[in-house]
Structures are given as C-alpha cells and as structure tokens.
Design a binder for these strands. Structure first.
Lengths: 237, 237
DNA sequence: CCGGCGAAAAGTGTCAACATTTAATTGCAT
DNA sequence: ATGCAATTAAATGTTGACACTTTTCGCCGG
C-alpha cells in the first residue's frame, strides 16, 4: 500500500502539541520551537520517522491542521520547509506526498554516503578529540549486545569537525535510510561482516591514520551497496 | 558593509513579476512557476545570485511583498523553502538573514566538494555517454579564450548519473561559491594550474579510468582549498 | 455495460486583518 | 550628558475567509 493516503481521522481526534516553553530556555533538548510552524515541522518529522506517514502517502493540509489544532498557515510553512529539505514532493495544485524511495534512489544515497562518509572519516581522524575517540573504540569493541545503542557512522559524522557534512548525513541521509528500512523490511543481515569492518575502521582511526580509515570506510559502504543490489536482484526474480 | 540591510526601497518602486504562463507549457526554461510563491522563490534566488541581496543582509517580508506586488503569504512560503535549503537563516521572531560565508564555512564546502565531486567524477567515467564525453574533452582543450562558457565541474556533476549528487552540487554548493566569490572579490588567479589539472582530469576520463580521474579531481580540489587558505592567511596579516 | 461530459466536492493558493514579539525611541532620573 | 526604563513603532507569527484548480461522482448517450 504504497500509494495510499495518510490515515484519515475524524475532526474530533485532536492531538495536543507539546506546549511551548515560555520563551526562556528554548534550548532545552535541542528543539527550539517557540513558533507553531516549528512545532508542526517537528511533529511531521516525528510522524515520518515513526512510520505514521508512510513513504508515498499524501499529506493533507487541512486534516493535519485540524489534527494539530492550528490554522493552515503554520502547516503550509512547515510543509515548505520539508519541501526545501526534499523530504516531501509537491506539484503546484496537487497534494504533497512524502518522498518514496526506490532502489535507484537508495543506490544514489549510498554513493553519496561513500564520498561523504569517507571524507568525514578522514576529517574525524584529524579533528576528533582523544576522549571521543576512546569512547568510539570502546563502543565498537563491545558491539553485538548493544546493537543500536551506539552507531559508528553517526558518531563519526557528529565528530568530523565539518558541520555541513554532519548536518547532511545526520539530518537527511540517515533519516531517509531509516524511512527506507521501515518501508522495505530489514534486509537479511550482514551484521557479522559489518561488525568486523567497523572494528577495522575504528582501529585505523585509533592510529589516526586518515587515509587508511577513509579507504576502509569507503570499502565498507561499497560492500553494503553491493549487498543491497544483490538483495534487490534476488527479490526481483 | 556586511551587516547592513537589503536596499530599502519606496512603496512605489514595484517590479513586475514575469507573468505566469497559462498553465500549459510550464516547462519552458526550467522554471516551472505557476504559483506566486514559486515565482517569489525564483526572484529571490536571482537577486541573491545577482548580488542584490548581499550575504548577511536581512530580508524584510513586507518590503519584499510590496516590491513584488503580492501578499505576505507567498513571500513567507518562499522564505521557508529557502530556509529549508539553508540559504537563509532565521530565529523565531527576528529578521531572516541571507547566510554569510566565513572562511570556516568555505573550507567546509570545499571539503564536501572533495568527497562529492570525487565520487561524481568516478561515476561520470562509468555513466557518461560518449557524445557528452567528447563535448567535455573538446571544451577543456579549447579552454582559455572561453573561460566560463564551459565549466568542467558543473558538466561532470550534471552527467554523473546521480541526481542527488547533481542537485546538491549544482543547486547548493556552486550557488554558495558564487555568493562567496562575489562577496570577497575574485582571488588572485590560479587559472594556469587549474587549466592544466582540468586537462589531466579530462584525459583520465577519456580513458574511462574512474579511480584515476577521481584521484585527480580530489587532488585538484584540495589544491584549490590550500590556495584559498593561503590567501586567507595572507589577507589576515 | 462502458466511456465521455458536467457539476459538485475537496484541496490548494492567496489575501487582508489581527495578535505577538522584538527593536527603536522617547522621556526621565542621576 | 549618560544610562535605564517605559512607550511607541515595526516586523514577524497566526488566523479565517475567499479564489482557483484538481479530482471525484453522477448523468447521459452510445
């Protein structure tokens, strides 16, 4: 049900937006949201991440506005910001749809990751603090029992010292990947190999060997890509 | 005058938005703009690219609305899309400003380019059509007299076969670089070396040698980065 | 029974007025 | 004259109503 609409709901089913802080400590947990449009944006982002708005589904402005008990103005502004982020696609007068990711788009995202995360890994080797690096090593060594409590890729992106790369990876690409994984169930694991490759990358980073770490990271992502296209070919037979 | 406001203009100074096509062949020259917000967006983009809105200057919604003879709604929606693209920054109730690029941001952009354009070059070696490659070779060989009529970087990005990388490079990063060049005059040339490096890259691409072309492109961008930080250090003394 | 045609419904785009917040200015006390 | 506080001005945020477009549903003819 990829082309369906978002779940229709009655007028009475109104959810309460978390109340705005009284304009004092907006930097509470990172979501500075004093305006309604900001809160609508955050809400839609959460719904997309949470799987409530499936990829390809239609987002209805008036329904969303009713649901959030706000006017259509803030809703429209939030949608325009999502549009600028390329998370929803729209044609002038037709409904806006959550972007749906096909195999081609996923391949593009993985190619982008190969270039960006390779560079991020190299930069992290030079910029990352010793404490952060130790935390990374420890977390990678004890991987397996805590599968998603610590994400090597995200940690590298967040500490690479390049805010633009960090934002692009964490706020957009990883977001899209989560959408895709939710959309087309978790692929059959490659976790053992991935863990081994993660350990190699962390080891190279521990030596502050930027070029080697970059090369390993790129190979790691390329193998994941090949694994993905293999899955895709198998599912198409 | 980096912190100034955008040029104030009287109420009577109204410019005419180019009239919308009658909803038939909107794909005329790539600017599908049937809604007012779309035209406002395109107008602001042109003004930023044209240097009328300097980096760091504030954009006044009501002035802009008056100037374009539209209401504030479309203006706000265009601004939100620009905000999603990270071309303007805003805090909840304060004026929105065109992003201003310091040396740190430029360095980040060049690091991003190194990763992305390297990958784009490798992909282009595999995906680019023979005709497109011939056009590239010919244009690079006859460089010098037609300095900006043909841009190697843009041509590679547009033909790399990865729409996401293409959009990010052409619609965002190159845009920001143009802003920066306009902001802090053209750096003292490195055109001879750049031309030579361009020729090497094109030669590797002509052999469809992806890894070599990628390596050359990355080295090319890294040299440009080092040149830029040298300029910066000199100007700071 | 099916396909084109037309009207009603739904949805998006635009506008002008109102509320709220920030910035600027004025006035006053020191 | 300078610095601080209250007031005024300006800009942004929000709302409901209206205009335009698309889609849908019903109708008629074949």
């Amino acid at each position: 049900m990829n082309t369906g609409v978002a779940p229709k709901l009655s007028t009475l089913d109104v959810v309460q937006l978390e109340p705005s802080v009284p304009a004092q400590q907006a930097a509470d947990d990172g979501d500075r949201s004093n305006t309604l449009a900001d809160r609508v944006l955050q809400d839609v982002l959460d719904r997309i991440a949470g799987g409530e708005f499936e990829p390809g589904s239609v987002i209805n402005e008036v329904d969303l506005a009713r649901r959030l008990a706000v006017s259509r103005g803030p809703v429209r502004e939030a949608m325009r910001r999502l549009e600028g982020r390329k998370l929803i696609a729209r044609n002038p007068f037709t409904r806006a749809r959550v972007v749906s990711l096909g195999h081609a788009e996923i391949r593009e995202i993985f190619e982008m990751r190969e270039g960006l995360e390779g560079m991020a890994t190299r930069l992290a080797c030079a910029h990352m603090s010793d404490e952060s690096l130790c935390a990374l090593i420890g977390a990678v060594e004890s991987a397996g029992q805590t599968p998603s409590a610590f994400d090597l890729h995200r940690h590298i992106a967040e500490n690479c010292g390049n805010g633009r790369i960090r934002d692009l990876l964490c706020d957009e690409l990883y977001y899209l990947l989560r959408m895709y994984r939710r959309q087309s169930g978790d692929a059959p694991g490659r976790r053992a190999e991935a863990s081994e490759e993660h350990w190699q990358i962390a080891s190279a980073m521990n030596q502050r060997n930027g070029p080697l770490a970059e090369s390993l990271m790129r190979a790691h992502i390329r193998r994941a890509t090949e694994h993905l296209v293999a899955i895709e070919a198998a599912s198409r037979s």
